[in-house]
Design a protein around this nucleic acid. Structure first.
Length: 835
RNA sequence: GGGCCUGUAGCUCAGUUGGUUAGAGCGCUACCUUGACACGGUAGAGGUCACAGAUUCGAGUUCUGUCAGGCCCACCA
């Protein structure tokens, strides 16, 4: 058979990648009622490009999917992408900024959306093309996008249902506001970090000093609180004090929120700009004065500070207080601030009217589903993290002041103010019948639509055959960073809407980090681009490198060296194939030698282990087992011994099975080589995965172990004696029983792989003596060299000659080394004598 | 403040229910360009399994504590 001399994955990987897609080899028909394995891809952002995290996740999913498919199961992997509301909008906005110096707000909503859609049409296919190049075996005929008409209908249906059920409501609450993105954010979208800030102590009245980390908000204070147990309580409680820098008077209230002994014991209350104060304001019926606007500048209510940026206003307020002598002191204070996880702008707490989802009633069945095992986590420890969050869940703010996304299906009546929520766009107010309706301007949090993904992609709300055939899906594979964002919400939506779990298992994988365990990031410049790696080393090497490093639970430290090493593995397989393909294939395909029987047993064991480890999601162990089977067993032992045989037909049989075993992990090279065997199938991906068994050929394995021990002993003896590897030597082997038998039966094999002719003696214990012809001149040369070294170091030890002027420090180490040299020389002299 | 995880060879990591001599890849040393492969072969070196106790015939593995590091959640003026 023809086979190219050099392993060049670029020559065949793109070919197979295209062919798998073009011929729809992974398309599957829905047959409700039959067993299946199905999985929905965690949809990557449509705007994105493939990074190592995707590559890793897809390597895991694709291996598992291919394994299930090869086991003959009806296997579906649904691909798709996410519109990624805020991320996409920010990206297009930045692009406008860079290219035209304009922002989103220079355009109308319609104009802007048209641009985003255009961008999506032009560039949205990029990540999908990259996935195809990476060989993922999705059913591309079922590709979905979260803003497809069908999925949008699902979003709307769910919203209306939950609204009608009272689980979605609208109201004024304290929210996280990003002044840069001009939208509200959910708690999960805020990243908290510690910063070194200050605590300013401000005297509001004699004997009443408040401490604050945000002095600019004092302009919106509507009370000062002290603890009811505070000694000042009786005197100050209910009194009015004048708020510095303003004309207003505010009350001193008594509330436990002022902790005795913390700070000054008095807390300023700003209901419009602090979550705690917002609650306190409700408790005490306080006014709420918003002094910071949605754009992050001070409002008219801030008086002479109006129009200033909030951080400028802070400086100005502090300066003014200092000038008035009201600033008692400034302390260093460590505090945590929240930033928008998209643009890193400091989030401003504001009171705002938003849409919310009640989470407690949705969380309960979702908690139960994991508690009673209808959903299991792999590794199971992640269940604790899930429970921890779910049991302390708070309502989810689902509206966003964005344009790109699913617009909230609610209409406001211009006449009576009633809100009409409907499946079909209404023409009149549900209360007063007025036609003066305006649709809510907001869109839904992007995670609302992703939360429906497992069933919306299968055609819900229609009762499709796909839905009946493939829901619940079998598995979710994802990173721990989106357990709350996504996984938990899918469980809640699945339980509420479908009345069943969205998937039976959740496999949580780690993060791909660089070789130094640092997070990969563009700013650090340590990003390893999967497409670059694919070009350089081939997809198979990248996949295998990721999978063999994928220990459960842990992050993986990926280096280019690791990928390079796996390319060497692929290269090894390629070259083993070249050897095999140079041999005749004709024959009965039955074992003809010990080597044949042994490799069949090893193949069987490897197959059994691979199946077992796949079942346990231990892709690292699958990879490890197959790596060692191919390299150690098949190449290093089997092929070397096989070179003695004339009939190679059985080798082809084993080889073909070994290709199948490896296919889920290295789909390209196995497909390419398998096709050259002309087995008649369309693709190795649809060939049956070898089952293997725990029953091994004990006879063959035992004999082979004996043979390996003999060979290794000979090689070691040769290495010890420094024998030229090309030279065949004679030797005497003492052994008995089975080992002797093996030595007798396999004398030719031993001679070949160890270059030795052995005289066998039936005696214990096992021993080996090589009859070596010693090269006298080589020995003499070695002795001479060593003696030179000894003489030199002797001079050092005794500080003779020129060294006497600058005596070296004599250490024990030097003396020991000297003794070693002398012993070595003595040994060599003895050897010379003998010869 | 609450929760989770990690600490094993120079580096990155395995080590299944406690059981002889603790493994892999890379790196390192020596030898070898042999007709599949130097992206290779053969033989090696290298570990007080963070530390201290406890349980046990037996602990890298179980328990407690200490130290070190990482992550997540949290309305800590």
């Amino acid at each position: 058979m023809e086979i190219e001399k050099v392993y060049e994955p670029q020559r065949f990987e793109p070919h197979w990648a295209a062919r798998w897609v073009d011929e729809q080899m992974f398309r599957v028909e829905a047959e409700p009622g039959t067993p299946y394995f199905s999985l929905a891809i965690p949809p990557p952002n449509v705007t994105g490009s493939l990074h190592m995290g995707h590559m890793f996740e897809h390597a895991i999913i694709d291996s598992l999917i291919r394994w299930h498919r090869m086991r003959g199961e009806r296997t579906l992997w649904v691909p798709g992408t996410d519109h990624a509301g805020i991320a996409t909008e920010l990206m297009v906005d930045r692009k406008l900024q860079a290219e035209q110096g304009k922002s989103k707000r220079d355009f109308s909503r319609e104009e802007f959306l048209a641009m985003v859609w255009q961008w999506k049409e032009q560039h949205g296919g990029r990540i999908v093309e990259q996935m195809k190049r990476a060989g993922v075996s999705c059913d591309w005929s079922r590709e979905r996008f979260t803003m497809d008409p069908g999925l949008s209908r699902a979003v709307r249906e769910v919203f209306v249902r939950l609204y009608e059920k009272g689980l979605i409501y609208r109201g004024d609450y304290m929210v996280n506001w990003c002044p840069r993105c001009q939208t509200v954010l959910s708690d999960l979208e805020v990243e908290h970090g510690d910063v070194n800030g200050s605590m300013w102590h401000i005297r509001y009245a004699p004997g009443l000093v408040v401490a604050t980390t945000r002095p600019e908000t004092m302009l919106g204070d509507t009370a000062v609180a002290i603890n009811p147990e505070d000694p000042r309580a009786a005197m100050l409680g209910g009194k009015m004090v004048k708020l510095p820098l303003t004309d207003r008077e505010i009350p001193v209230i008594l509330d436990n929120m002022a902790e005795l002994g913390f700070g000054t014991g008095a807390v300023k209350i700003t209901p419009a700009h602090d979550p705690n104060d917002f609650e306190a304001g409700k408790r005490h019926n306080l006014a709420s004065i918003q002094v910071i606007g949605e754009d992050g500048t001070m409002t008219a209510a801030a008086g002479k500070f109006a129009g200033m940026d909030r951080f400028e206003a802070r400086k100005a307020v502090v300066a003014e207080l200092e000038a008035l002598g009201l600033l008692e002191k400034i302390e260093d204070h460590k505090l945590s601030i929240g930033k928008c996880h998209r643009c890193r702008t400091v989030v401003e707490p504001l009171v705002s009217k938003q849409w919310w989802m009640k989470m407690k009633p949705l969380a309960e069945p979702a908690i139960a589903a994991v508690r009673d095992g209808r959903i299991t986590f792999v590794p199971e420890n992640w269940g604790k993290t899930y429970f921890n969050w779910m049991e302390n869940i708070r309502d989810w703010c689902i509206s966003r002041q964005l344009w790109w996304g699913h617009r909230i299906p609610a209409w406001h009546c211009g006449k009576c103010g009633e809100v009409t929520v409907a499946r079909e766009d209404p023409t009149e107010c549900s209360k007063c019948g007025s036609a003066e309706l305006k649709q809510d301007r907001d869109v839904l949090d992007t995670w609302f639509s992703s939360g429906l993904w497992p069933f919306s992609t299968l055609g819900w709300p229609d009762e499709t055959a796909d839905l009946k055939a493939f829901y619940p899906t079998s598995l979710l594979v994802t990173g721990f960073d989106i357990i709350f964002f996504w996984a938990a919400r899918m469980v809640m939506f699945g339980m509420e809407i479908m009345g069943d779990v969205p998937f039976r298992q959740i496999h949580i994988h780690g993060l791909v980090r660089d070789a130094d365990r640092q997070k990969m990031s563009k700013t650090k410049g340590n990003v390893i681009d999967p497409m670059v790696m694919i070009d350089k080393y081939g997809t198979d090497a990248v996949r295998f490198g990721l999978l063999i490093s994928a220990a459960p639970g842990g992050d993986i430290a990926l280096s280019e060296d690791r990928i390079d090493a796996e390319k060497a593995f692929a290269n090894k397989i390629w070259n083993a194939s070249r050897l095999l393909f140079s041999k005749p294939r004709e024959g009965a395909a039955e074992p003809v030698s010990l080597a044949d029987r042994w490799i069949a047993s090893r193949l069987n064991a490897a197959a059994e282990a691979a199946n077992r480890h796949f079942g346990e999601h231990r892709y690292d162990l699958v990879a490890d087992v197959l790596y060692h089977f191919w390299w150690d067993d098949f190449c290093d032992w089997y092929l070397e011994l096989k070179k003695l045989d004339a009939d190679w037909s059985f080798s082809y049989k084993v080889y073909e099975q070994a290709l199948r075993l490896l296919h889920p992990l290295m789909p390209f090279i196995t497909e390419e080589l398998w096709q050259r065997l002309e087995m008649g199938g369309k693709t190795i991906a649809l060939a049956k995965y070898p089952e293997g068994s725990t029953i091994v050929d004990v006879d063959a394995e035992t004999d082979m172990a004996q043979l390996q021990e003999i060979v290794t002993s000979v090689r070691k003896a040769r290495a010890d004696a420094n024998v030229d590897p090309k030279q065949t030597v004679a030797g005497v082997l003492s052994a008995s029983g089975r080992k002797l038998g093996v030595a007798q039966a396999n004398a030719e094999a031993i001679a070949r792989v160890a270059r030795v002719t052995l005289e066998l003696r039936d005696e214990e214990p096992f021993s080996l003596k090589l009859a070596l012809k010693v090269d006298r001149s080589k020995l003499e040369k070695e002795i001479a060299e060593l003696e030179k070294v000894i003489a030199n170091s002797q001079r050092q030890l005794s500080n003779e000659g020129f060294l006497a002027k600058a005596p070296a420090k004599v250490t024990d180490g030097m003396r020991a080394k000297q003794a070693e040299y002398e012993a070595q020389v003595a040994k060599l002299r003895a050897a010379l004598e003998e010869a």
